[in-house]
Each structure stands twice: as structure tokens, then as C-alpha cells.
Design a protein around this nucleic acid. Structure first.
Length: 309
DNA sequence: AAAGGCACCAACCGCACGTGC
DNA sequence: TGCACGTGCGGTTGGTGCCTT
């Protein structure tokens, strides 16, 4: 038996929303909050599919949306984040307060792609266009994404946990070329087919460190998305994935935690989090029960948005 | 002024994933 | 364990307005 449709299509409006529909949706959400999208249309007196209501609210009606043109800074941030995350528009949007994934996706397809082409950069690979067919070519982007793989080679389901970055060689290389692109699992086993020699792996552990300075995270716990954060907590990678967690301070509604860095990179387990210095020590706490870390672990420090469960 | 092409973007669609029963 | 459901995501479509010829 297939799944039931999300709504009775013959009884729903489609296409552009009217002002009256918008107002009904706004009024309902003001009174009852977000969530239960399937039942919302009926309760709000709207002849719309629940998904349509959700989209309309998230992409257009939400009061915290920033309207208007993208700034040059936002452009560059999107380009950098895309080089790290690929077409993960929701993750990119989470780093651009007031912007939606749909908006960024549209903007990417209509503006930034062209901009990158005009710079001679392939928007998908972030490599020079004339190097697209050369697998050994040096990436042009300032940073390169490394997708964390589980030890069995599969990707982690939660893409929030997939983010990792490497940047190497800025100290001894003035052209900003990124030198190493390896999966974390490959680094954990220098004898694997990854191609990293023991020396290279050690070198990577010693030198890899990227801090992306990004704006305020908009993906913060709220009554509407608290479950999402609970799930993230529950879905923490297994201890054998050797991840240390830092949760940010006090996240009550009156005191939001602020994360200004995506401090990602390879560090030894005894090494202090450099992000601490940037943020102020009081803002960072280490989880009380970090996963076990083995002696020779390659630790991936990750920084998460606030959590208040 | 009309027609065609193009750019933009809101909205839709199908699918994946997590949860609860 | 399997199913139904709710939600979210990324890709695509279609309507609209502007520009060019």
C-alpha cells in the first residue's frame, strides 16, 4: 500500500497565494505556532496543501526574513559555503540569517553560477573551468569540502555531521591553493588505499586547521525545532567516530549562544580549541560525556549550534 | 506596438528520513 | 519489524515582468 497523499488535491488551491490566504496563515501561526502542517490548512481555513502552507511560511511570510538583494559579502559566503557543502541549500541557508534555502538556491542558479563562470570557475566543482577534466588539477576555491565517511565507507545520514573542511599550506604557499583533499576515514588509516603516506597523514594532523568565520547561526533551538536538536543529540556519531563535542554555554531564550566559527580541522586530542579564544572561554563548554577517544585518534573538532533541551 | 526571448522566483513535486505505533 | 505519517530537502516547473528586435 502506498503512502497517502498529503492532501486531497481536488479540494486545494494551487499557484500564487492571495493576500487573504497569507493573512490567514500568518494569523493562525501567530496563535498556534508552527508545526502540524498537515492539519494546519483545515484548522486555518485554507484550501491549501499542508506542504504548500509550510513553504509559503518558511520562504515568504516568516517575520525574520531578510528581503532585498544579496550583498557582496553574502555572495562570497554562499560561494565559500557551496564549495564546502555542495547543493546543501538548507545548510547554507542556516549560515545566512534571514535567507531561505529556496532563495539561495534560486540566487545561485540565476546569479552566482554566472558570476563564477565569468571568473572561469566551474560552479559545481569550484575548479578552474579548463581544469575540469584534469583530476590532478589544483582546486581553485580557497577551501575544499571533505565529506566524512563512516568506517564502512558509507556517508553519515545526518548531513550536519558530514561537514568537515581542510585547508593546508597557507603558511608555505601564497597562492591559497588547497593541497589535500582526503576523507577523515582515509586519514584514520594511513595504510589504506587512500594514498596518504604515514608522513602525509601526520603532516595533515599537524597542519590541518580551518576556521570559517561565519555569521550568527539561525538554526537554533526554538519550540518549533527543539525536537530536531534532540534528534541530533541522540544521533551523535558513535564513539568509534572519534568526535569531540563542544556545546555552547547558556542557551535559554533570553541568552542565546553565539557561534562565530566553524572551527573544523585536525587537532590532537590534547590541543585546546582555538575557537575558544575567538569566542571567549565562557561561551564554550565541553559536553560532559564526550565519546571515547583513542590514543592515536585523529580528532575532528566540530562546533554545534546551541542546544537547550 | 507587438512578438519573442530571457531572467527571475514562487511554488510544486517526488523522495528521503525520522518517529511513533 | 514494518507501516503510516509528518517533515524537510533538492530539483524542477510555470507564471510574470522586463528587454530586445
Amino acid at each position: 500500500m502506498g503512502r497517502s497523499p498529503c492532501c486531497e488535491k481536488e479540494h486545494t488551491n494551487k499557484g500564487a497565494w492571495t493576500k487573504e490566504e497569507d493573512q490567514r496563515l500568518i494569523n493562525y501561526i501567530k496563535l498556534h505556532g508552527e508545526g502540524c502542517w498537515r492539519s494546519l490548512p483545515k484548522a486555518a481555513g485554507l484550501l491549501r496543501c499542508g506542504k504548500s502552507c509550510r513553504l509559503r511560511w518558511i520562504n515568504y511570510l516568516r517575520p525574520d526574513l531578510k528581503r532585498g538583494n544579496f550583498t557582496e559579502e553574502e555572495d562570497e559566503l554562499i560561494i565559500n559555503l557551496h564549495s564546502l557543502l555542495g547543493n546543501k541549500w538548507s545548510l547554507i541557508a542556516a549560515r545566512l540569517p534571514g535567507r531561505t534555502d529556496n532563495e539561495i538556491k534560486n540566487y545561485w542558479n540565476t546569479h552566482i553560477k554566472r558570476k563564477l563562470y565569468s571568473r572561469g570557475i566551474d560552479p559545481q566543482t569550484h575548479r578552474p573551468l579548463n581544469a575540469a577534466v584534469n583530476p590532478t588539477a589544483t582546486p581553485a576555491a580557497d577551501t575544499v569540502a571533505v565529506i566524512r565517511s563512516n568506517s564502512d565507507g558509507s556517508d553519515d545520514n545526518n548531513s550536519k555531521f558530514q561537514l568537515a573542511t581542510t585547508e593546508l599550506g597557507s603558511a608555505n604557499n601564497n597562492n591559497n591553493a588547497t593541497k589535500i583533499v582526503k576523507t577523515e576515514s582515509a586519514c584514520e588509516d594511513s595504510n589504506s588505499s587512500s594514498g596518504l603516506t604515514t608522513e602525509e597523514a601526520a603532516c595533515a594532523r599537524a597542519q590541518l586547521n580551518l576556521e570559517l568565520t561565519i555569521g550568527l547561526p539561525s538554526d537554533q533551538p526554538s519550540p518549533g525545532n527543539r525536537d530536531k536538536f534532540k534528534r541530533q543529540a541522540r544521533d551523535q556519531p558513535r564513539p568509534d567516530q572519534q568526535v569531540l563535542y563542544h556545546w555552547y554555554g547558556n542557551f535559554s531564550s533570553s541568552s542565546q549562544g553565539v557561534c562565530l566559527c566553524y572551527g573544523l580541522g585536525f587537532q590532537t586530542k590534547d590541543q585546546a580549541c582555538s575557537c575558544k579564544l575567538a569566542m571567549g572561554a565562557s561561551a564554550v563548554t565541553t559536553t560532559a560525556n564526550p565519546p571515547a577517544v583513542t590514543e592515536n585518534a585523529t580528532d575532528m573538532y566540530r562546533f554545534y549550534t546551541p542546544m537547550n533541551i
